[in-house]
Simulated assay, not measured.
Amino acid sequence: MADPKIQISVVVPLFNEDESLRELHDWVKRVMAENNFTYELLLVDDGSTDNSWGVVEELAGENDRVRGFRFVRNYGKTAALQTGFEASRGEVVITMDADLQDSPDEIPELYEMIHSGRYDIVSGWKKKRYDPLTKTIPTKLYNAVTRAISGIKLHDFNCGLKAYRQKVVKSITIYGEMHRYIPVIAKWNGYGRIGEKVVEHRARKYGHTKFGLERFLFGFLDLLSIAFVNKFGRRPMHFFGSIGTLMFVLGSFMTLWVIGEKLYNLYVGLKFRNATDNPLFFLALVFIIVGAQMFLAGFLGELFIKQFVSKTSEYSIAEKTDNTIEPKHS
């Protein structure tokens, strides 16, 4: 639950950023003081091998609004953000990268856009970027595919600078490389008021990027996973059963065709030909077997979902009336 005394939780995932951490901390602290915000700064060290954790400990010792978390190894940005989301206590949760390419000066306007009640999420858009073409071109392609699949009209899904209503981050769970798709996951969980703000993209001051081109491949696979689970996660038979039924029907039709052809040849006195001499025989066999397996996969999925739903529920309740009585569980 949100702490009414904390207006903003700033969540910063970091990996080998010891050179920039103090400067980032001082910048965030100055912005908060200038705007009289109550805040907490959550620094999540994703298994750094440099002195990042030492800097985090120093900052936490100097400023009681700093909270540090350190992973035993490198789990990835998504894991760091999930940890920060779970620990956050502010009314508005703002995420940003630790490399100083995101400007803390954007925080007041991002906060106001969420606090005003207009949006559940506000995503930054780095309209002018300081990245090489090897990064910007794949990013544009990735954003276009994500827009097409999700229906969310954002220009920059991958921007680390985002603001969330606290209910949003507490109602979602991310893993893998799914931090890029938090707006997509949130929308499919009922938080569809998603806005966008043009933000400053600063040139990297220290170190080098920690991400390679493989992240786009993994990110695309995660997008397909999210889309599939959201659409068919609670009704797997609709997916597997539909494909299985179609393949089984096609295989059965091919089988009847092969049998009919053989009977016709016998009737008209044509030279006898074994059914196995017809390529359709083997294709029909494959379709029938795979179709039956797909249908069985859907059936097993339905059994699993039934057991899962009987024990827990993923339905998000926005509000309850004061006289709502919690049901008793036997």
Rank of each mutant, 00 (worst) to 15 (best):
G241V: 09
G260I: 05
L296P: 00
L285G: 15
F299I: 09
K262E: 03
I289W: 07
W257K: 13
V229W: 14
G244I: 11
T276H: 03
T255K: 11
L256K: 02
K231F: 05
F239W: 12
G260D: 06
F232T: 08
N230R: 15
G298T: 02
M254F: 15
V229I: 08
K271W: 09
F232Q: 11
I259F: 08
L224D: 00
A227R: 01
P279M: 04
L296H: 08
L270S: 12
K231Y: 12
L223Y: 01
N265H: 05
G269Y: 01
I243V: 15
L296V: 11
A275L: 15
V268Y: 10
A297T: 03
F220Q: 13
I259Y: 09
V229G: 00
I259M: 10
V286A: 13
Y264N: 05
Q293W: 09
V249F: 14
F295A: 13
G241S: 12
R234H: 03
L283H: 10
P236H: 01
F281Q: 02
M247A: 15
V268E: 07
M237R: 12
E261I: 05
G269V: 01
W257R: 13
S242P: 03
K262A: 08
G244S: 06
G251S: 08
N278Y: 05
G244L: 13
Q293G: 03
A284T: 07
M254Y: 10
Q293A: 13
Y267H: 10
T245R: 09
R235G: 07
G298A: 10
L266T: 09
N265S: 06
D222V: 00
G251Y: 02
T276P: 00
F299L: 14
L221K: 10
R234L: 10
V286T: 14
S242L: 14
P236Y: 02
K271D: 13
A227E: 04
F228K: 12
L280Q: 03
G244E: 12
K271M: 05
T255D: 11
N274Y: 05
F253H: 06
F282A: 11
G244W: 09
M254Q: 07
R234T: 12
Y264H: 06
L285V: 06
Y267P: 02
F220C: 02
G298Q: 01
Y264D: 04
V268W: 06
P279E: 11
M237T: 08
M254E: 11
V286W: 08
L256N: 07
D277N: 10
V229S: 13
